[in-house]
């Protein structure tokens, strides 16, 4: 499957990827509306960690044997066996945080967006859960610090 890779040597901590991610995962797909009027606030799933000296965009690896799926108690976290895309279903998620503690990359986050916390993670910008799209973070990166390339394993 194609995966997003972050190259820390070229990451410049601008966080345009975060803005693009948040916009894509909003209802309006409009940056201004996503940041100002939409409720619940849309969440970005990619996160730039670090400082201006050294930073990297942390993103879901869509592991071959994902720990988050293994540990999910409600069946919200699933890996599509055909595409390999790991997604979290907000309707099923109970916010138990097992996935957060199991993820070796810190790529899952719980956000208090409604009454309860819900697990959010990268879905490769698929229009349908489990299908990969054209990741908006990769398109927004000005320095090719995020690349979307074919990789081994599904």
């Amino acid at each position: 499957m194609k995966r997003i890779y972050a190259i820390e040597a070229w990451c410049i901590d601008c966080k345009r990827c975060e803005v693009a991610c948040k916009t894509f995962h909003s209802r309006s797909r409009d940056t201004v509306k996503a940041f100002t009027v939409e409720y619940p606030q849309p969440q970005n799933r990619v996160r730039v960690e670090g400082t201006r000296q050294l930073s990297v965009a942390v993103n879901c690896r869509h592991c071959a044997q994902p720990k988050c799926v293994e540990g999910c108690i409600s069946g919200a976290m699933t890996k599509n066996p055909r595409t390999g895309v790991v997604t979290s279903d907000p309707r099923k998620c109970v916010g138990c945080r097992t996935c957060v503690s199991l993820c070796p990359f810190g790529a899952v986050r719980i956000e208090d967006v409604a009454e309860k916390g819900i697990a959010y993670k990268c879905d490769l910008c698929g229009e349908v859960p489990g299908e990969a799209g054209e990741p908006s973070c990769v398109a927004a990166c000005p320095n090719r610090a995020l690349i979307y390339v074919e990789s081994e394993g599904c």
Partner: peptide, 13 residues
């Protein structure tokens, strides 16, 4: 100000 979302990209750039 109608367009600015205070994302801070300008500050970091």
């Amino acid at each position: 100000r109608d367009e600015c979302v205070q994302c801070g990209v300008c500050e970091r750039s």
